[in-house]
Nucleic acid binder design. Structure first.
Lengths: 419, 419
DNA sequence: CGCTATTTGTTCAGTGGTTGAATTAAATGA
DNA sequence: TCATTTAATTCAACCACTGAACAAATAGCG
């Protein structure tokens, strides 16, 4: 049987860096103009784009024509603008063109969502189930079903899915294989092969396989990058059962030499502390992981599902439950020590608390900031912002879908060539 | 008086990202071809470049013509090559074109060097002096004198200086101002203003001021990137009086949001450890800084100059002096704990020990590797290499000069336009 | 020695894409 | 109503790359 559902991991999609042919020029300008349209707060006119990019109005017109023909851009209706002169026709991202499918497998739920070019979430399904006892093949089967329904819904809305991304709570290699997902109990799961039986969700576009598998913390950070008002560089920490981080540098996710960056949960906080299951000692996860916080708060036996734990902690903290407050202060201090290391190393000016940490930001922020103040050499000149993630619990799925859309915006040539 | 010696810090030189005009195309291909020539091990022919880049032979010929006219490339003499067919004419970087001037101010010496396009060090002067009691203005005056002599020597060799970079052991802001250089005793030193009195070393090329001021650890890492066989991403740790790090990601130095990345010396190793002068507690510098190692080795009172300390330690370690061996093992463990954090976070596969650590690598490596093994989640699948820097004590100056040359190679358009 | 095969480098017409100026389009305001 | 103003399109000119044909320079072979 031929593999119908091609798949890959996180290897950069053949970064060109090669010859700059004649046509590359147009491709670059398509990306440039589309990027400006996407980044603009209100629909810009062709003339404004010309002034903004430095291209001629003639060129912008030609480029925009291509983008409109490719259903990536539409003209906004009568623009309410003052002043004399012919009124500008605003340009905005099309709401009925290509869209991205985002998928997520987590410990206690599956999720699928569809995001259009403009970043709107057009479909969203969450399927709650404890997936630890389920085999990877079965879990992926259920996910494919969810994805199929998402596709039908998207098509009904006039959208065309142009790719999909899947977030998993673990390490993924270049081939899309899940090397290790401890909290899910997966090890060396060949996602591409297991999905080969299922019908493809989309066709390959521009050499990019329709499904990209990535770490959920990475995808959540990407979601934050493109949903929130986050700056070009920040650290996104997701506190779930484990603690993961996505590092966004200069507007791009940094994946590391092998795509395994962001393992912040196993940064040592106290090198001589208690042993961690990773083999090290005194890892952050032992002080600020979900289990650690719950047990410090005296809620160890409650056995709450992951998303409930955070809600419960928020309730108790709001009620000023002393043990919970103490547990959160301790966790915040540990996070702060770690974040101080990261900021000293990378000089980031923003830290986003995501996942289960997001609702707890009010209690975690003070100790985190205190440690940064104490330990970061440059803190005096340049304050570090600590803020909650703007996306909710589904950040990874939305971020996954957003990453697909983002790639289209960054390289529209591929999508247009497909026509 | 007009400022004759323009200056700036580390802000990226107006990253284009803007319009891709007609001419940009040529500029990109100039950079592409020149980059391949620079990266090739033996002088490639035009035909080989065409095959390599994907451009046509016709285009490569035209591009090369421009590069030769601009003195960036020369034809190698009769290439000893076998096989039938017209013999290829190899192309190599010109040894008599533009060159970079690298400068360094450190605690106990000043240095100036000139590096040509091919990466050869064509001039090198070190002026030893304890600069702590000297005023910044005087120190910079002496440096300007050194630079002037370097320029004369370079010109005598037929080289044209196309820019300069200055490394200082401290934090530098966008304007080239040294915000803080603790070991030098500098604070808020406006390098550009202080150098305004001195004659300019070069003219502005392509909008880039002739002098760029940067942290010495950053420049040393850049030097390693382009001298050593280092891969695209690595961490370069310089152990001097303080401990600095340069982070190279995907072949580019990562500077952080404000250019202050790499402050690895103040990453907490033991959050509750002894207080550090930075205000934190248990910083790496307290366990692996030069003073810490010397005092742990029982050499505290020796008061050796910075570069002698490392030599002395090497001698004693070679002689298996027990206290020294113990001190190095402890320092290595502290470095290892910190490096493990970094590798967990960034997934780097190479760590370079530079500065004073380079000659001590034999003793530092085992404990560093041991900590990585224990604490890095992905260590089992992907080994981390720990190796000494290939450049010696002058890595920063050479790296500074190299960074100038590197910019010309990356963007030859600017240099060619100057003609 | 001369011929062929082979590979390198150049020349030249053709084409795609941007430029700049002129032109058309559509509104405001006196 | 018409001048003014700004937006968008049209079109000849130009720049850089492409592809193919051609010239150059060598090795191998009879």
């Amino acid at each position: 049987m031929t593999v119908m559902w091609q798949c890959q991991g996180v290897k950069p999609p053949a970064a060109p860096a090669g010859a700059v042919r004649q046509g590359s020029l147009r491709e670059l300008n398509l990306a440039l103009v589309l990027g400006r349209i996407a980044a603009a707060r209100r629909p810009p006119s062709r003339a404004a784009l010309a002034a903004d990019t430095g291209l001629t109005r003639a060129t912008v017109s030609a480029v925009v024509e291509d983008l409109v023909a490719g259903r990536l851009v539409t003209e906004a209706e009568p623009t309410p603008r003052a002043g004399a002169g012919r009124p500008a026709r605003g340009l905005m991202l099309a709401g009925d063109g290509p869209a991205g499918l985002g998928l997520e497998i987590n410990v206690d739920y599956l999720a699928a969502c569809v995001v259009d070019l403009a970043g709107q979430v057009r479909h969203h399904t969450v399927h709650r189930a404890d997936l630890r006892p389920v085999s990877p093949a079965d879990a992926l089967g259920r996910l494919a079903e969810l994805a199929g329904r998402a596709r039908v819904d998207a098509n009904a809305q006039g959208l065309t899915l142009a790719g999909a991304a899947l977030g998993v709570p673990g390490l993924v290699d270049d081939a899309g294989r899940v090397r290790l997902a401890p909290n899910l109990g997966w090890r060396d799961v060949p996602v591409p092969e297991l999905l080969a039986d299922h019908p493809p969700l989309t066709e390959t576009v521009d050499g990019v396989p329709p499904l990209v598998v990535d770490n959920e913390a990475n995808l959540a950070a990407l979601g934050e990058l493109h949903a929130g008002a986050a700056p070009g560089s920040f650290l996104h920490i997701s506190g779930e059962v484990g603690i993961g981080a996505g590092i966004v540098l200069n507007g791009a996710l940094f994946r590391g030499a092998r795509g395994w960056s962001g393992e912040i949960g196993h940064i040592p906080v106290r090198p001589d502390g208690p042993p961690c299951r990773c083999g090290g000692r005194g890892c952050l996860e032992l002080y600020a992981g979900q289990e650690a916080i719950l047990s410090a708060a005296g809620l160890a036996g409650a056995d709450l599902p992951a998303d409930r734990a955070s809600t419960r902690l928020t309730q108790l903290a709001t009620a000023e439950h002393p043990a919970v407050l103490r547990a959160l202060a301790e966790a915040g201090t540990a996070i702060g020590v770690t974040v101080a290391s990261v900021v000293n190393l990378l000089d980031l000016d923003t830290v986003v608390l995501g996942g289960g940490y997001a609702p707890l930001t009010g209690w975690l922020r003070p100790p985190v900031l205190a440690e940064i103040e104490r330990r970061v050499l440059t803190a005096a000149w340049s304050p570090v912002t600590v803020r909650p993630a703007t996306l909710g619990a589904t950040a990874a799925a939305v971020g996954a879908a957003g990453s697909v859309v983002r790639r289209i915006i960054a390289r529209p040539g591929g999508w247009l060539a497909r026509l």
